[in-house]
C-alpha cells in the first residue's frame, strides 16, 4: 500500500450533499460528528469542497433539478472517490417512489459503492458504511 493510500484511509474527508431528502438522514450525518458519536476522532472531517473530498455522502432521491448538480459534484472530486447512498431514498427512492419529480435512487446518476438502508439511518450505520467504503480503497492502485 502506498503512503498516499494509507493516509487516505487514516483520514477520509467527507462531502455531504442533500439531493431531496427529508432532512432526517442529514441531521443523522451531522449527529455522527457531534459528541456522542464523534467521528472526528477517526480523522473523518466534514468539508464543503468537492475538490478536497474522498467520500461523497448523498441523501435523498435525486430529482430532475439537482441531478446535474450531483453529477457535477461527483466529477469534481479527485480519484479515488467513494460514494455512499445514505438512507432508503438514496438507495431506491424509498417512500417517494411515486412522487412525480423524483428519479428514484442516486445510482441512476452516479456509481455507488455502499448503500445504507434505513429511514432515517442511524449514526452508527453511517460510521459503519464509511469503514466498509474505506476497505475498498485498499485495493485501489493509483
Amino acid at each position: 500500500m502506498s503512503i498516499l493510500t494509507k493516509s487516505r484511509i487514516k483520514s477520509p474527508w467527507l462531502l455531504h450533499y442533500d439531493c431531496g431528502g427529508c432532512n432526517g438522514c442529514d441531521i443523522e450525518v451531522l449527529a455522527a460528528l457531534t459528541p456522542i458519536y464523534d467521528i472526528e476522532r477517526f480523522g473523518i472531517v466534514n468539508i464543503g469542497n468537492p475538490k478536497h473530498a474522498d467520500v461523497l455522502l448523498v441523501t435523498g432521491p435525486v430529482n430532475h433539478r439537482n441531478k446535474r448538480v450531483l453529477r457535477n459534484l461527483y466529477e469534481q472530486m479527485p480519484e479515488p472517490k467513494l460514494v455512499i447512498a445514505v438512507g432508503t431514498c438514496a438507495c431506491t427512492g424509498g417512500i417517494f417512489y411515486n412522487c412525480p419529480n423524483t428519479l428514484g435512487g442516486i445510482d441512476k446518476i452516479i456509481p455507488v459503492d455502499v448503500y445504507i438502508p434505513g429511514c432515517a439511518v442511524r449514526p452508527e450505520a453511517i460510521i459503519d458504511a464509511v469503514v466498509i467504503a474505506l476497505g475498498k480503497l485498499k485495493e485501489y492502485k493509483g
Partner: peptide, 15 residues
C-alpha cells in the same frame, strides 16, 4: 428555490 422539489402533494393523492 426548487432544488429539492419532489411532489409529495401529488403522491398524497396517489396513495
Amino acid at each position: 428555490i426548487g432544488y429539492i422539489y419532489r411532489g409529495i402533494e401529488k403522491a398524497g393523492e396517489l396513495n
